[in-house]
Simulated assay, not measured.
Amino acid sequence: MPDTVLPSSWVVEGGAADDPVRNAGALHGLFALTGRGSERVIHPINDSAVEAGNSGPAFYCVHSLSGAGGTDFCQLARLMPGVRFYGIQAPPKKMRDPAFGGSVEAIADYYAGALVKFQPQGRFLLGGWSAGAIIGLEIAQNLRSRGREVALFAAIDAAPENTAAGRRPWHPIYLLQLAANLPGWIRHENLIDKTVAVSLVRRARQKTMARVKAALGKRNTSANDQAVEGIIDLARFPAEQRSFMKRLYRALLEYHPKPYSGDVVAYEARVKPLLHLPQLGRVWRGIAPRSVIVPIDGTHASVMRKTHVPPLADDLRARIARIATLPVHDNTGSVCSLAEARERRRARALVGP
């Protein structure tokens, strides 16, 4: 297939590029819970997942491009007491295998096998953000082919690219929607802030250089690798992790999703990138007719951050509660209705910290 530049919504690691705290976490996120020789795939990422005797439903979160399975979901997991959050992580030892991550289907099969071994019985609740949404879709397909039930798949602000569901960039409606997105993008980016403005210029320069290199290297197998480097700072990661990320990037480009007949909730950020509309609603309805599209405030990166993640947590908590007959909690752990949880959150926002 022709070399292209992958949308940043598959690549950005939690907005780490402009957040020093998250930057530091991203450096060692993959190896934080295990050694470099570990083959472990599934890791607990909240207190409920390690509490002895906790019988709450388990929610499995698929890693994004870095392979780290827990860092992206920490804020969401903290707001959902009673749900056992587990991260699906690329095992550091497997990253040394040059074939691991070479195709979405193969890596999903590996993770599905680990899930079945970890949870021999019962329904699966599965989700992914960014590249994890694409890998997670294939894991869900694989689990269903093994005869296991996937009661819910939550795709957080990402979808496969190789579909015919979206409008072309020159379509009049696409152009109108792109223009309508501009005010929200400007408000969110806070262009008055000098630091933000400098960061935006740097990111634009990186993406432009990546596109130029990809265009000049159409017949060069490294073109897509250069595109990755234009979007995320690979120097922050160990060598074997960088190689894995490049393989997985190419695999995502080559992945063609099959129709999915299960239940999907697709969370779509209201603020889109400046020059690209992901059109997630149209894409997910094309892949999975039973998809429910839920708009959420923020951008691709910020929907997983502390400021924007509470509405996502409210909605996902209620959906899991309906599936697992789990009482709804607010973020203090108190049992309440979904409406009460939202009202308490609103009241706290008005009062302030």
Rank of each mutant, 00 (worst) to 15 (best):
G15L: 03
D19Y: 07
V21K: 05
A26I: 00
A32S: 13
A32T: 11
S38I: 09
S38M: 09
R40Q: 15
R40C: 13
I42Q: 00
P44L: 02
P44A: 02
P44R: 05
I45K: 06
E51M: 13
E51K: 13
G56I: 09
C61P: 02
H63R: 05
L65H: 02
A68C: 14
G70L: 12
A99W: 06
G102K: 05
S103F: 04
I107M: 12
Y111S: 01
A114R: 03
L115P: 09
V116S: 12
K117M: 10
F118S: 08
R123D: 15
R123A: 14
L125W: 11
G128E: 06
G128V: 10
A133R: 01
A133Q: 07
I135W: 03
I135R: 01
E138R: 10
N142L: 05
L143M: 01
L143D: 02
R167N: 01
P172H: 01
L176A: 08
Q177C: 12
P183W: 09
L191A: 07
T195F: 04
T195K: 15
V196C: 08
V201I: 14
R203C: 00
M209H: 00
V212N: 01
A214W: 02
L216C: 11
N220E: 03
S222R: 11
N224W: 05
Q226M: 14
Q226D: 15
A227R: 04
E229K: 14
I232M: 14
L234D: 08
F237G: 13
E240P: 15
Y249I: 05
A251C: 03
E254T: 10
P257E: 00
K258H: 13
A266N: 10
A269N: 04
W284E: 04
I293K: 06
T299I: 08
H300G: 09
T307P: 06
P311Y: 10
P311L: 06
L316P: 12
A318K: 01
R319M: 10
R322V: 11
A324K: 13
V328Q: 08
H329Y: 15
V335P: 09
E343W: 08
R345C: 02
G352C: 05
